[in-house]
């Protein structure tokens, strides 16, 4: 650790990289500061103070008002429900499929993988209209299932693709040792592959959580009943109705983003690399 710090100090390239990272971080962080500050100011203060001046007196009333006026209790519940089912379920299916494709002998594996990768290449905007027709014909418009199924269909292929290449890189002797030890494929997956995949799974979970939580286009097409709306839809409608209530609008934005930030903070500690080290040598 000390050495790393020393190296950072001396190496101009690292210094440069570090500085540019800092600049990028600031650029990304600026709107967030603006939003949080504004959400805590009263309307008159917003008009009179600069965007980046910290709020004088903290006004938390914006949050309560926005929550009630925007019907966020429904939207929040819908988002949580959809995300909490879709994200873990999708990851599990993806991990199991990726394991099967990487480690179970089958001459169709390559073809199936190709098919899956092909699925990731079609931009989903192209598929929105056909997707609506399909969901509609299944009678699933305005249902959670009608949203979760397309979410799964669009999320899983990427995850399979990434997990498959990860599983492929696990030394095959590890599977073979488990096979000799009498483990079934499922046990091998659960006891050996899953634990060493944790960092990758954590990364995928965060990405997928954020993507699902913020997903707008598909939800807009499939959910028409305002009671079924997810947070991004609720936020949009709120913005349409109360666009001059800056304080409340920004409070609504903060409430929408906060869960994603929390999930990130919770799971980022699983990003520990090198979990396979020590498995094999040479």
């Amino acid at each position: 650790m000390k050495q790393m710090i020393a190296a950072t100090r001396r190496d101009p390239v690292l210094m440069g990289l570090w500085l540019s990272l800092l600049v990028f971080a600031l650029i990304w962080f600026a709107p967030f500061v603006f939003i949080v500050f504004t959400s805590l100011k009263s309307s008159p203060e917003i008009m009179t103070s600069g965007a980046f001046t910290p709020p004088g007196a903290l006004v938390t009333q914006n949050y309560a008002t926005a929550w009630n006026r925007g019907g966020f209790d429904h939207a929040f519940f819908n988002s949580v429900f959809v995300t909490v089912i879709k994200v873990p379920l999708g990851l599990m299916i993806a991990a199991l499929s990726a394991y099967a494709l990487a480690r179970m002998k089958n001459r169709w594996n390559k073809l199936v993988l190709l098919f899956i990768v092909f699925g990731t290449m079609i931009p989903f905007q192209v598929m929105l209209a056909p997707l609506f027709t399909l969901v509609n014909s299944l009678g699933l418009v305005d249902t959670y299932l009608g949203l979760i199924l397309p979410y799964l269909a669009f999320g899983i292929p990427y995850q399979i693709f990434i997990l498959h290449s990860f599983f492929k890189s696990v030394p095959k002797e590890l599977s073979e040792a488990a096979l000799i030890d009498g483990a079934s494929h499922f046990t091998t997956f659960r006891r050996i592959f899953l634990p060493i995949t944790l960092p990758v799974m954590a990364a995928l979970l965060i990405l997928d959580f954020v993507a699902t939580w913020n997903e707008f286009a598909m939800a807009l097409v499939i959910l028409q009943d305002a009671d079924k709306w997810t947070l991004p839809l609720g936020l949009m409608s709120f913005q349409g109705q109360f666009s001059n209530e800056y304080g409340q609008l920004n409070a609504a934005i903060v409430m929408t983003v906060l869960p994603a930030v929390l999930v990130y903070l919770i799971f980022q500690r699983y990003f520990v690399s090198g979990l396979t080290s020590g498995a094999v040598k040479g």
């Binding site: 002797e173 590890l174 073979e176 040792a177 488990a178 000799i180 979990l275 498995a279 094999v280």
Partner: peptide, 19 residues
């Protein structure tokens, strides 16, 4: 199946379960 052959194998790279 390998598990029914009553054998044990030591691999060149050891193949220990890392976790």
């Amino acid at each position: 199946a390998p598990k029914d052959r009553d054998i044990a194998m030591v691999f060149q790279n050891y193949a220990l379960y890392p976790q």
